[in-house]
Each structure stands twice: as structure tokens, then as C-alpha cells.
Design a protein around this nucleic acid. Sequence first.
DNA 1: AACGCGATCAACCGCAGAGCG
DNA 2: GCGCTCTGCGGTTGATCGCGT
Length: 251
Amino acid sequence: MGRSPCCEKAHTNKGAWTKEEDDRLTAYIKAHGEGCWRSLPKAAGLLRCGKSCRLRWINYLRPDLKRGNFSEEEDELIIKLHSLLGNKWSLIAGRLPGRTDNEIKNYWNTHIRRKLMSRGIDPVTHRGINEQQHGSNITISFEAAAAARDDKAAVFRRDEPTTTKAAAAIAHPRQMEWGQGKPLKCPDLNLDLCISPPFQEEKPVVKRESGVGVCFSCSSLGGIPKGSDCKCSSFLGIRTAMLDFRSIEMK
DNA sequence: AACGCGATCAACCGCAGAGCG
DNA sequence: GCGCTCTGCGGTTGATCGCGT
């Protein structure tokens, strides 16, 4: 048996929102705040399901949204974050003020994917398409990055499934400090992130020493001193892209 | 002007996980 | 610990727009 529907579908509108619906939703949220999406439509006098209201607010009506074209910097950041996080659009959006996950997802699928493909880069693995069969796993160390920040102890254990935690730390570095202003101390956590090309037989993970960079363009695994560029001098066509955690740290 | 086609983006759907009793 | 509800996320769909023929 399936779960019960989130709302009474027979009595809800679907499709594009009207100006009046937008106004009602905006006015209600301004008066009562976000939250309790299930009961919101009824309270606001809307014939919509709660999910639909939430989506409309988050993706379109929120006052802090930055609409319009993506800048080159935003492009670059999205590509970098996607190479680290994959399709974690909400985490990526967390690093792009005023942008929504839906917007970034659409932008990725319509613009960036094609852009990377035209450069001969696989948008899924972020590696040259020709390199696919020679690919090897890459682990990116965030230990140095964590130490570079104030939250020196935010290091995750490698042997637990921490990809999401690491991703969250990247997307919302301040949010890793749970507990009313007390910095989170997790001395046994390791921020190592492992990125591996899909559809490959399992190979031993190549562990990078912290403080050593990895070039995603030429896949140099020989160890590149931190702070210096790889000889190939490009990352997805963008210079300065030694994948150093600091380079994706924002503001 | 009419049509076809690809691009774009708002909105929907189903699932997973968190929270709560 | 279990079951239920609610929220949030990612994938997908479909309406609309713009351009070329």
C-alpha cells in the first residue's frame, strides 16, 4: 500500500500560479512566517497543497532571491561544488546566496552540462571524456582546510559514511558549529571526501596526503605542492583551480 | 503566417529522513 | 523500538517561448 497523499488532490489547483495566489501566499507568510506547510494552504485560503506552496515560496516568491543570469563566478563555483558534491543541489545552493536548488539544477542541466560537454569534459565525473577508462579514484583531503578555519576540530572519520557531513560542512561551514555558539568539537572526524568515477570496478582509493593538491583537469595524482598550480594550468578550462578547499570557501 | 523543434524553467511526483507520540 | 506525519530533496514533466524554415 502506498502512503496517503499529502493533500486532498480533488480540491487543489495544479499548474501555474496566478497573481492572486502569489499575493495570498506572500501576505500569509509575511504575517505568520514560514512553516507548517500542510495547514498553510487552508489558513491562507489557497486551493493548493502544502508542498506546492512551499515550492512556490522558496523558488519564486522569497524576497531574498537573486533573479537573473548567473555570473561567471557563479558558474565557476557551481562547477567546483558539483565536482565535490555531485547532484546535491540544495547544498550547492547553500553556497550561492539568492539562488535556489531548483534554479541551479535547471541551470546545470541547460547550460553548464552542455558547456562542459563541448569542452570534452564529462559533467558527471568532471574528467576528460577520453580519460574515462583510465580514471582512478581521488580523495580530497579537507583536513588542512578545517585547520585553516577556526573550527580546527571539524574533522570527520574516514571510516564512517561522512560524505554528507563533509558536504554539509562545505555548504554551510558555520552550521557545523551546533550548540548555541559553542564550536563543535569532533576530534575524531575526518573531512576526507572521496570522488570516484561511476560505473567502475572498485579500486583501492588513492589517499592523498593533506596539503597536496589534485588537478581535476589532468588528473595529476603525483602530488602537487599546496598553493602551486599544476603544469596543465586549467581546471575545466578555468585557471586557478587547484582544488584547494580554501578556493571554495566564500565570504 | 504557420509550423516544427529545441531550449528554458516552473511545477509536480515520489522517496527518504527527521521528528514526535 | 515502532509507526505515523511532515518536510525537504532530487529527478522528471510539461507549458511556454524563441528561432529557423
